[in-house]
Each structure stands twice: as structure tokens, then as C-alpha cells.
């Protein structure tokens, strides 16, 4: 019972883990390469959700200091800044992967991993 209450109180972490598992399952079971890229993005986002939820303080204000700093409680700005960099890396990896997918389509005529394996086995 106590375990259940802890899980309910930390529902952000649970949803982050659930999203990660959904993304990994999609990435492993689908053979379309573009769908693999989308699933990788979902996994990225779940990791960001985990980190930002760690930095959240209940009832805290956004960490923006106006001229007289009058707020008492701020959320931790460090995980947010780290995840800003993470989003940039995620978009860069997406662009790189998509350019590779377009190149693969030009060479094999398909973006399906199973069909690519079939073509490669016949070469």
C-alpha cells in the first residue's frame, strides 16, 4: 500500500518510464526506418521529462529573476538548461538520421528494413 502511494505521488517518473518503454518497443518491432526515427524522438522526450521532473519543486516559480527578486521558492533551473542542450542534440540526430534514410531510399528503393535485408541477401 505504501509502495502504491509512492508510485501515485511520483506519477511523472512513471509516465516517463512508460513513454521510454513504448518508444523502445516501437523502435524494436517496426521495420519502417522513419517510424524508428519517430520512436527515437519519443524516447528522447521521455528522458527529458524524467530530468525536468527531478528538478521540479512543488509550488516553485519559474527561475526568471525580475528587477527586485521577490519570489521565495524557485524550481531548479539546472536540469532545464541541460535538457535544452539535449533537445538540440535530438533534433541534430533526427536530421542526420533522416538524411541517411533518404540516401538509403535512393540506393535500395525502399525504407523498410526487412526489404533492405532481403535485397542485401540477394546481392
Amino acid at each position: 500500500m505504501e509502495m502504491l502511494i509512492k508510485i501515485v505521488h511520483n506519477y511523472y517518473y512513471m509516465v516517463a518510464i512508460l513513454l521510454f518503454v513504448i518508444g523502445m518497443h516501437t523502435m524494436l518491432t517496426h521495420s519502417n526506418l522513419i517510424k524508428k526515427v519517430i520512436a527515437m524522438n519519443i524516447m528522447d522526450t521521455s528522458v527529458f521529462l524524467m530530468f525536468v521532473a527531478v528538478g521540479y519543486t512543488y509550488g516553485g516559480a519559474a527561475p526568471i529573476i525580475t528587477a527586485p527578486a521577490n519570489e521565495v521558492l524557485y524550481v531548479n533551473p539546472l536540469p532545464g538548461s541541460l535538457m535544452l542542450t539535449g533537445i538540440v542534440v535530438a533534433v541534430s540526430i533526427t536530421a542526420y538520421a533522416l538524411s541517411l534514410v533518404v540516401k538509403i531510399y535512393r540506393y535500395y528503393g525502399t525504407v523498410d528494413y526487412d526489404e533492405i535485408c532481403l535485397i542485401r541477401s540477394q546481392e
Binding site: 522526450t45 525536468v52 521532473a53 527561475p63 524550481v75 532545464g80 535538457m83 535544452l84 533537445i87
Partner: peptide, 14 residues
């Protein structure tokens, strides 16, 4: 979650 800059970058980039 009170991190508006991450929200803005996610909406623009992600």
C-alpha cells in the same frame, strides 16, 4: 513544470 524556456524550445524545435 515551471520551465518555460524548455517549453519554448520544445515547441519550436521538437
Amino acid at each position: 513544470l515551471s520551465s518555460p524556456d524548455v517549453a519554448m524550445v520544445e515547441a519550436a524545435l521538437g
